[in-house]
Amino acid sequence: MPGATVIEAVRVTLEEVMGQDDRVFIIGEDVEAGGVFRATEGLAAKYPGRVIDSPLAESSIIGISVGAAHYGMKPVAEIQFADFIHAGFDQLCSEASRWCYRTRGEAHLPMVVRTPWGGGVHGGQHHSQSIEAYYTHLPGLKVIAPSFPADYRSLLKAAIADPNPVLFLEHKRTYRMVRQDLATEPGESRIGRARVTRRGDDLTIYAYGLMLHESLAAAETLSRDGIECTVVDLLTLLPLDLETILEAARAPGKVLVVHEDTLTGGFGGEIAALVAEHAFEYLDAPVRRLAAPDVPAMPYHHNLESFFMPDREKIARAARELAAY
């Protein structure tokens, strides 16, 4: 099969950036051996001393990255699964996101925390989680969640070049699911820009990560039935691209926000609120959210997992209802 997968895009980008800038180093669990998803495979041999196995201690992985970035290095930390990042929440919330603000710009942190998130891999409660709702509530941090390999590459590069702390979310179900030719696809290289991936007049779907792919599949099916969707790949969740989000909502006037996180307090609420607040006059239907049900976490067994997760069928169903409104 031609082209690069998401995980290959991540790996080649790390390899390339490390070759260009010797301030970049990698720190995390099992990264010297290549990491459990092989995102850092071969890098320890190519860049000796710059791929650092950490002890199993997430708060310090992030806190040490904060210190190293303060010194002027460009750490790229890997948290093995997003589900385990919460032990480092304090370091992201109380420290990294406030560093620039509390020094009034005197200090800043060029650091990236990469982590695989999302479900659909039979990972149960603690290998499937969506964490974006917690971390997008931290102004001062940037949060990126791409969907296509080329964007993984361009936005990971941008994240490492950015002078601010960036949480880079990699949907693990998509690691080997999609391919793109990185030589011909440049990807979005601006943090804070969303992309209209598909244009249609009937309704607008907002999504990111695996749900973006499911939304595109649903849009394909709906198109055969004469329902045309605009699909917005949000790409950066913090700061949001308000302009693109609103522009995409106006013409269709019907909006469906999709995410695989649970509903209440989920990130979709923010998109829904923005559209309701700033594009109300353009709307022909109430803003609709499709999300996982409000249960504590994604369950393990296939029956339970697929019931929990939104997918192309559920998206298509919700979209049909909305189109008929």
Partner: peptide, 16 residues
Amino acid sequence: TQFPHAVGIALAAKLC
């Protein structure tokens, strides 16, 4: 929270 920062600075200095 400043303890890991100190360690990170020391790690960076060692790398440099």
